[in-house]
Amino acid sequence: MNRYNIKQMIQVSNLSKSFDTIHAVNNISFSIRKGEVFGLLGPNGAGKSTIINLMSTILKSDEGEILINENDIKQNSTICKQLIGVVPQEISLYDEFSAVDNLIFWGSLYKVPAKILKQRIKNILKLIGLYDRKDDLIKTYSGGMKRRINIAAALLHNPEILFMDEPTVGVDPQSRNKIFEIIETLNQQGITIVYTTHYMEEVERLCKRIAIMDAGKIVAQGTQTELQKQSNVKEAVQITFQLISEVQLEQLQSQLQIKINQSEQKIIIECDVNKDLSNIISICNKSNLRIKDIKLKKANLEAIFLSLTGKQLRD
């Protein structure tokens, strides 16, 4: 299917929201396609949670428009609320209730019939791997388990869109991986996911498209490749030779026909790593250059973010 024919699930246009003198969200626009995992990446205070609150209808924008599956959230907030599930940043559960009682409560708010709700709870608990602990009180759960129930509580009304606001904050790597698996399964089932985080590796793993946010603005958006182009961050290979003379270096430069930065026995070659690396190694071997070490410098999101905003993501 042509990408232009894919249905837009979320369309945000010229959205702004201020709190007193702080512009939390400043004239931003983006759209998200059905079945997409869209990442909102930015440091704390960038405006990610405000966007989630605006899209989930609990905050009113000062300016701009949000369409959820073509429904204006200002006019059809009840319809929109049925379409979306929200996984809040805080673990918003009742500690004194069991997992199943929490899920029954949260599911009942969406008027899911009791029989269907019971079956859904069973399926979701199995999906998140906590069916065996369903009757335990939430206060006896580990942080990672609570996070999984926090996700489950947003799925009980079968939402088409899932907003996940930093769903892995404070969890161990094992639980984080489990959460990633859950998200991937949900996405395979066709749920559109908006994922906010300040962890680049999460976005890199999960999101097809990314919006990079800073100080209430979207500084760039697109796939990782598109972001790389926008930021002018190049991939590079750093090769350290055991010994290389100036003559050999000139020969290598003419053979590769690319710019080489040299420092002592090291050279840094800006290139498309996936496409050019094998050719570079082959030429080095033919020139009898003995390679001591090869390092790949990928154009990752950290470098892209630094290039676009001039600051580290965790600032």
């Binding site: 609990i58 009840t78 609320k81 049925q82 805080e90 559960l93 949260w106 969406y110 509580a153």
Partner: peptide
């Protein structure tokens, strides 16, 4: 605790 906010996410 954040549960109030979650209540507001619901209809």
């Amino acid at each position: 605790s954040g549960t109030l906010k979650r209540l507001f996410y619901s209809p």
